[in-house]
Every structure is written in C-alpha cells, then in structure tokens.
Design a protein around this nucleic acid. Structure first.
Length: 948
RNA sequence: GCCGGUGUGGCGAAAUGGCAGACGCACAGGACUUAAAAUCCUGGGACCAUAAAAAGUCGUGUGGGUUCGAGUCCCACCACCGGCACCA
C-alpha cells in the first residue's frame, strides 16, 4: 500500500489525531470509485521529487528539463526578468498551526487559490504560490505555561501536522519558499523592519516617512537630552505612557483591534483600561493614505467599508472654550460647529487632564467619586450600561466664544477620553446623547436648527436644516443652510483664533508590545544617561536576530513583569544596559510575510530588490490602467482569506508596506491588489462548526473516504466562494461519483478488475500495479466530429470564463455536463478527452495526471501535445465557430407567457422568425378576440406577441 | 441605531431584462444481481384535472412600479447573516 500515513504526525498531547469514524468502516467495505488512495500519494511524491511547482526568480538558473523551462523554451540559461513570462502572485492567508489541525475552512481558500494558480500556469504565467506558518501565538505559550514544554517544540509538532495535512491535498505550492515566523532567520527581518520604523519619522510636509537622522530640530532643542526627547517623540515606533487595554486573564495588553465588545478577541476575557508604559506604532500618521488608497485596490465593497469605518474620518472643527475665571482653556472637536449657539453645557471625559485643575472645592468629592466609579468599570460595563447616562458637575463654567454665555462644565463617561480631544460641547437640541443627558440633569435645551420639514420636531433633530437663534454680537448664522453655517462659523472662529477646521480620525496608534514569551524580542536596550534618566536605544543591525532567552517557566514574574524578566543574564548587557522585556504582537510576523516569499532564503536582505520588482510588478505601476487590462497588476495579484482580519492583519500589513514604500524598500504603495474573502463553512446542521456542538468535520476523515480530488472539488462545488454555506458530506459523495464517471470514461473495465484482483494479493506493489490499468478501447486516435466538438468547446468557454470570474461551482457543473455527454459517445476521440483533462487538472489534479499519462502514452505525438507535463500544458482555446447551431429553437410568447416553440434555420431573418411565430397553431386561442399590438423579435432568441 | 450582504424546489444552488430551477444531493420507479452494494436508465416546483395524459392556473421574502416581457431594474417594507456602535 502507499505510504499515505493518516495518523497524526506525532504523539504529542496536543497534536491533531484523526478520530475513529464509523463512515470510514462503511466506506472501506464498499468498492472505491477509483484507486485514489494510490494515485494521490503517487502524484504528490512525483511533484515533490520533480520540483514541479518551483517558481523561478529572475536570475535563477532553471534546469533544462524542468517543466517550466520546457513550456517556455528557457533552456539551461539564466533567465532575467525580461525573458521570464508575466508573473502572477497568488497568496493565501497563511495559517496559525494550532494543535487542532486543519479544519475544512482552511482548504476552501487554499483550493480556490490552487485552482487559479494551476489555471494561470496553464495560461503561461510565471506563478508564485507559496505557503508558510504564522507560528507565534498564545496557545503554544499557554501550553508551555501549563506543561513546561518549550513553545518551540509544540510549534514544530503542529507545523508538521499542518504541513502533512496541506500536502495531502495536492496543492501546487512552491515549498522551497516556505516561511515560519518563529524561525530566527525570518524574525531577524521582522526585527529589522521594526528598526526601520524606529529610525523613521512621519514628515507631514511630504506626507511620508523619512529617516530620523534628517529630522529638523526646533530652535529650543539645545542639549543632546532635549534633542533625544524630541527625536523619540517623533519616531514611528515610540514609547507611550497611557491608558491601555489590559487583559488580566491573558496577562498582557492588547491593541484596540484585538478588543471586541470590551473582551479579548482571543478567549473572550474582560479587558480594563490601565495606564502602562508601552511601545506604540504611529499608524495614525498614515490614516489619510490608508483611507485614500483603498480607492486604488480591488477589494470587496464591504471590506473596504470596514476599513473606512475603522479609520473613521470625520470633518469638523476644533473650538476653544475659555474656562471662566481661570487660565485654562478646553478644546473640543465637533462636526457641527453650526450648532455652537446651541451649546448649553460642556462635558469632559472623567480621565481628562483638566478635570482636577478646574473642579471647584465643593465639587471635588463628587468628581473624585465619579472618576473612581468610571475607572472601576470595564470597557464592557461602560458600553453595556450605556442605557442610562451618568455624570457630575465640576462647579466650573466655560465661556461660549460666539455669545459669551457661561455654560456649566460636567464630567460624564459618555464622553470618551480616546476620541477627539476627550471633551465636547453639548448641544442637546440637536444631538441624541446630549439630549438624553440634558433631560436627565435638567440642563437647558435650545433650538438652533430648523428642520426642512415644518412637521418635524426640532427637539433632538440631528439632520441638516437652517440655522435659527444663532445671532451673536459679532456673527450671525440665522437663515443659513447647515453646510453654509458650518463654513461661516469655522471661518469666524479661525479669524478670532479660537478654532479651526479639522479632520479627526477614530483610528488610534497601534499598541505594539505584549507581555509574552513566544514572540519577537524587541531589538531595543534601555540605558541611563548622566543624570540617571532612562532612555531607549536601538541595537545595531549586526545584533540581529535578537533571540529570546531559554526559560523553564513561561509565566509573568511575581511582580507582574513580562516572562523575559526571568532570564536575568539575558536581560543585562555587559555595558550595564538592559534589554526591552516586552515582545512584539502576533501580527508583526504576518505584516510582511508576503514579501519574504519573494526571496525566502535571502540572508543579506529581507527581500532582494530584483525579486521584489519582478513579483510585485513594479513595471505595472506606470501605466496602471493598461497594465491591469492586460492582467498585470501591481502587488499581490490575488489574496484570498477570511474576513476576520479586516481591521487587523489587513490594516497593519498595509501600514507596514507604506512605511517600507516610503523608505524605498518596496516599489508599490499597496501590498494586495485584489482581495477576496471566502465565506464561512457551517456545520451540517447549518450552525457554525464548533467542538461544543459536535458538528466539526475533520478533513482527514473526508480524505480517507473520498480522496483529495473529491474533497477539493466538493469545497468548490458547494456554492460561490464568498458565500456562507453549510457542509454536506452527501454532496462530497456526489462529486466523488462524478470523478468515478471520469475514471470509467477513460479506463478499460476488464483491466481494472484484473488490477483490483492483483491488489488484493499483492497490496505492497499497489502503485506499480496501476500500470495494469488499460485505456478504454472506445478511445481512438481519431479527429472529433463537429457534434463532439460543440460540447467540448462549450465546456472550454464556460470553464475559462468562470475561472476568470472566480465562479468555481458553475465551472465544475460545466465539466459534469461535458462528461455526461462524452459518456454517450461510442467512439471517444483522444484529442477531445485530452483537452478535457487540461480543464480538469486545476480542480482534481491527481486524477487528471494519472489519466493523462495513460492517454498520451497511446495516442499520436501530434495529439499528445509534446513533452510538456500536464501541469504546464497550454490551456485550450475555444473556437466560437464550433458553437454555432444550424437550427434554432425559438420560444414564442403571448404577452410574456410561453405558448409554443418554433424551429428555424440559424440564418433566418427576424421577419422570417416573426412570420413563423404568427403561424403557430397553439398561439391562436390566446389571440382570440384580441388585436396584435406589437411583435417583439429578439434576434435568435425569442418572439413575444403583445395583444389586447 | 448606522453600514454591508443575502432571501429562488425537500436541500446546496443556476440563470448578459428574454423558455425560472442548469449541475449536484436527497427521493421514487426500472435494468443488472440469488440478494445487496456499486453502476446504468427514467422521473420530478406547486396546484387543478385525469384511468393515464394533454391543456390550464400559480410560482424566485412582502407590497407597489417601469417594461412587449422582471428572480434580474426602480420605490417602500419584512426576515436572516456579518461588521461598527455613547466616535461628538
């Protein structure tokens, strides 16, 4: 028997192991549709041995016998970028190798990309289709805390399982480019990119990142200490002491993007706000470009919207309010400066830095009490308890700059410290939240906007209208439409120096440090200057990679320091400086892995320039439109993955890519040109698959029963790639039967029976025995008849168009239609079946390869299509002339309802069709007593008679 | 509440404004078989009618509209799924 090992790769307690399944027993007792258990490993080993799917970089020497060289006539020479065919970079979101092994959702996207990779190869592209491991992460570390087993070991075990499972599906990955984010040879460059961020600042004048060395210092920066402080405040990677998302259960801080409804994205544990000193990345500097450049890439509308919402751009004004009788000013952000006359009070967030300064002595106790109350709430409580507004008066008043009115200053937790300035002007007349608050605390509510519709109640009206009651000593807005009022008041505020037009973003800087062991250490050390102040410094590139220290205990220390603090010797350097103890978040490695694939073994750079230029299609940037029209796109040509990374990985990776672009390390402003989200696969019960529901489908079980080709085919046949769809194992049987029909279309039954018998007595020689199977005698080396060419070319047309449009399900149905037809042919021309195998190959490559070998061995050289192996065979062209029918069947409708059909010659004119239609006997009763008003002839399609 | 997506047989689904339900599952009948499995053939939206059929009527979430003609386009709703949400 083949060596297909179906047991888990290792006996690790957490490694995946296929479970016992009673279906497997049932299937084993029935006869297989075809010997996939031999064919699939045979071809997988062949592809691996021959390096069939190795992708070639410019400048690489391609062996003359490699299929890519055979196909493109590249011979033994070293091919420069100009002599290579056009590139096609097709990328999967690489998996986190969890202990649970592959689930059926992974192969959905991977099969789609593999089909397209194989299709593009057939179309003559140089295809880059790589795979790797996003292997830093919490589960391996938690397992280490529990058992003391080093996360490295767990990770390697899990990767082995994942790799075995993925390889058993016959994907055409170039494994020579495999990456693992936990490999020091990889994370050396993750750390290197961090240094690029650290050593850069964002120049608003040029709107791009520039080296920190070129940062101009303000005049008052005299001493080295002052310069350092200024420099450190401008870096793209900087240290900040601010309230952060602290998750006590996980023992680490989290980025905003990792907190969902006040709970950790991983595990669902409560998250609290806590001030801590952390590393941040200045993604906010890129908010505008991240938003604008969405218009240049081909992503789904909904995904772009998610990013747009997350970036959260809003236009408005900053307005300054003088605190009455004090030197302090409160600055607020508002999108409705036109309602300034309606501001009847102000609200600061409880954490606002001015709260303590302005609170009057008699309100101090109440304010302190409220601050404690707000601080004690988790994020979750703060949002969930939002139904009822709370707050207290500070005793202070502010002066409204437009009318000099004194308005009370309150604090309330419905104002967020992290958005805008952390303070608002409250306009209860025209803001829902302010309205609720004012109602509860009896604050004045005045009208300053008249709704366009007189019937509408102005109280709480938040739409656009016309300003009313907005007259001050120096400025009046009365009668102006909302947009005009906004412009006028903003101009006035700017003139008076108490306000200005502003664009505000929801996006926050990216909190980039974690209190973990299993992540990239920062290439940073801390030093004390002469006056004893601590500052950070980058390690030189020569110190990379910074390796994590060996540990036996992976928990944080008793004092709450990160686990790396346990490695005392590692922490302290000979010169007395100490290492940064935090590690990078899991997202760091996935921010740039698609670049490492381009040149995965480069020890001198994160990626070679020539490779980057070729694969990222730098040449396509110039004339974008025509390049795209010719199928050459800048960046990754197609990226397929789940929607769950919409505002995490996909935002972070775009940010890093833009920084690398600014610094001249990559040649495109965006990493992923086209992106498609595959839909979730639900359980057979229509619920999301989960262990607790017991409805999880294990790919290994499906492979035992039906083989990889059927599994791949089913995942694509279920429905459109982007849709959510329920699993149905009976459906796998359907496509499996189809592959059985393909098998029987090609092979001789008697020889197969002989093979089966030989196999029972000599199972060891299984693969060898496949040679006994003969080609079906009905397959003859003869030209195909026009009647046979028609369904073949209809199939070629449909499959080609559907693959271009990512419609896999309908492409497969076209293959089925063709096979159903070809089964009825008494003589089966080899040329026709040959083209069919080229079409089948992307979907079910093992079976196609096996049959290809048998077919081409017995047919003439002319038909076999040279020595080029199937995986690199040119895609068939369809000939429209062959699809033309001699006669047409035309439906005849009366008032849009089908009443009869007529058969006419394909050459019939519209007039002849009309005459024939009106002559139909069957339509007569429907025209009885009516007059024909109009006859519509859709050429070659349909006739409709309008009568009344 | 806001944004996006989806609603079609018993089920997964298919249909450039032009014959609704391709292809597949499940089901039913038949052939082959001692029998079963596998395979091959046939059937099939609902209703009405009938010995059986033909013919007919209705039918793509609901209600309107545009059109010779609407699953498809427009307007207004409903349901479900996903995302965001006290974002000033």
């Amino acid at each position: 028997m083949a060596k297909r090992s179906l047991a888990g790769g290792a006996n690790s307690a957490i490694a995946h192991r296929p479970r016992f399944d009673k279906n497997a027993v049932t299937m084993a007792s029935t006869r297989r549709q075809y010997p996939f258990q031999l064919i699939e490993p045979k071809w997988q080993q062949h592809w691996e041995r021959e390096q069939t799917f190795r992708a070639w970089n410019p400048g690489e020497k391609i062996p003359a016998q490699h299929p890519f060289a055979l196909r493109h006539g590249l011979g033994e020479a070293t091919a420069g970028a100009a002599s290579l065919p056009p590139k096609y970079y097709i990328l999967d979101m690489f998996p986190y190798p969890s202990g649970a092994g592959l689930h059926v959702g992974h192969p959905e996207g991977y099969t789609a990309t593999d089909i397209l990779a194989r299709y593009r190869r057939a179309r003559g592209f140089n295809v880059l289709h790589p795979m790797g491991w996003d292997a830093f992460g919490l589960p391996a570390e938690q397992y280490a805390v529990k058992t003391g087993q080093h996360p490295r070991h767990t990770t390697e075990t899990n990767i082995a399982t994942f790799k075995r499972q993925i390889q058993s599906l016959g994907f055409s990955y170039d494994w020579s480019r495999e990456v693992d984010t936990t490999d020091p040879k990889y994370f050396k460059w993750t750390q290197w990119i961090f240094l690029q961020l650290y050593n850069s600042w964002f120049n608003p004048a040029t709107n791009k990142a520039e080296p920190i060395d070129a940062l101009p210092y303000p005049a008052d920066c005299a001493t080295e200490e002052q310069k350092r402080a200024f420099r450190d405040s401008k870096r793209l990677a900087y240290v900040s002491e601010a309230p952060v998302n602290w998750c006590p259960e996980l023992g680490t801080v989290l980025a905003n993007e990792e907190v969902i409804d006040g709970k950790s994205e991983v595990g669902g544990f409560p998250v609290v706000r806590k001030p801590m000193r952390q590393w941040m990345l200045r993604i906010t500097a890129y908010a505008e470009r991240l938003l604008n450049d969405l218009d240049t890439i081909d992503w789904s509308h909904s995904l772009k919207e998610m990013q747009r919402n997350w970036i959260g751009r809003s236009e408005g004004a900053l307005v300054e309010f003088q605190v009455s009788g004090s030197k302090f000013k409160v600055s607020v952000f508002t999108t409705r400066p036109d309602t300034l006359f309606g501001a009847t009070y102000m609200v600061l967030s409880p954490e606002h830095s001015l709260v303590n300064e302005i609170t009057t002595p008699e309100h101090r106790q109440a304010v302190k009490g409220y601050q404690d109350f707000a601080a004690g709430k988790s994020e979750l409580e703060r949002t969930e308890l939002a139904k009822e507004k709370t707050g207290v008066f500070t005793g202070a008043f502010a002066v409204n700059p437009v009318n000099a009115e004194k308005i009370p200053i309150w604090i309330a937790d419905y104002v967020l410290a992290s958005y805008g300035t952390g303070a608002i002007m409250a306009v209860p007349g025209h803001d829902t939240r302010d309205f609720e608050f004012a109602e509860k605390f009896n604050l004045p509510i005045v009208q300053v906007v008249q709704p366009p519709d007189r019937e509408t109640d102005w109280r709480g009206f938040v739409g656009d209208g016309r300003s009313v009651n907005s007259v001050g000593a120096e400025v009046s807005l009365d009668g102006l439409a909302t947009s005009e009022a906004k412009a006028k008041i903003t101009g006035w505020l700017a003139c008076k120096g108490v306000g200005q037009k502003t664009i505000n973003y929801k996006l926050r800087d990216w909190l980039f440090s974690r209190q973990r062991y299993w992540g990239e250490p920062f290439p940073i050390v801390w030093k004390k200057d002469a006056s004893g102040n601590l500052h950070h410094e980058a390690l030189p590139e020569s110190a990379l990679p910074v390796m994590p220290p060996p540990l036996t205990d992976y928990k944080p220390t008793a004092t709450g320091e990160p686990p790396l603090a346990r490695a005392k010797e590692w922490v302290t350097l000979p010169d007395g400086s100490t290492r940064e103890l935090n590690t990078m978040p899991q997202w760091a490695g996935s921010c740039w892995y698609y670049l490492r694939y381009l040149d995965a073994r480069n020890a001198a750079a994160f990626c070679g320039k020539e490779a980057e230029n070729y694969w990222m299609g730098a040449s396509a940037i110039g004339d974008r439109q025509s390049a795209i029209a010719n199928g050459r796109t800048p960046g990754v040509d197609l990226y397929v993955g789940g929607t769950e990374h919409a505002v995490l990985h996909l935002l972070y990776a775009r940010f890093w890519h833009k920084v690398l672009f600014d610094l001249g390390h990559v040649s495109t402003p965006e990493p992923f040109f086209k992106l498609v989200n595959q839909g979730l696969i639900l359980g057979e019960d229509g619920q999301k698959m989960s262990k607790s529901r017991g409805n999880v489908i294990n790919p290994d079980d499906i492979l035992i029963d039906y083989g990889a080709d059927a599994f791949r085919l089913y995942e694509m046949f279920m429905g459109p790639l982007e849709m959510v769809k329920p699993w149905n194992t009976k459906g796998v049987e359907g496509v499996y039967r189809f592959l059985g029909r393909v098998w029987r279309l090609f092979v001789d039954e008697a020889s197969e029976t002989e093979f089966e018998q030989a196999l029972t007595t000599d199972a060891q020689r299984g693969v060898e025995l496949l040679g006994k199977i003969q080609l079906n005698a009905a397959i003859k080396d003869v030209p195909a008849t026009p009647a046979q060419l028609k369904p073949l070319h209809a199939c070629i047309k449909k499959v080609t168009e559907d693959l271009d449009g990512l419609r896999f399900n309908t492409a497969i149905s076209a293959l089925m239609v063709f096979v159903n037809e070809a089964m009825t042919w008494e003589v089966k021309p080899a040329v026709a079946l040959r083209d069919f195998l080229v079409l089948l190959q992307p979907f079910s490559p093992h079976l196609a390869e096996e049959l290809w070998g048998k077919l081409t061995a017995v047919i003439s050289h002319q038909c076999s299509g040279s020595r080029v192996p199937l995986a690199y065979q040119p895609w068939p062209q369809f000939d429209p002339a062959l699809l033309v029918e001699d006669t047409l069947e035309i439906p005849v409708q009366v008032n849009g309802k089908l009443r009869d059909r007529i058969t006419v010659a394909a050459t019939a004119t519209d007039k002849e069709i009309e005459t024939a239609a009106l002559a139909c006997e069957k339509i007569k009763p429907f025209l009885e007593g009516k007059t024909i008003k109009k006859v519509i002839v859709v050429p070659k399609k349909l006739v409709n008679i309008a009568a009344a």
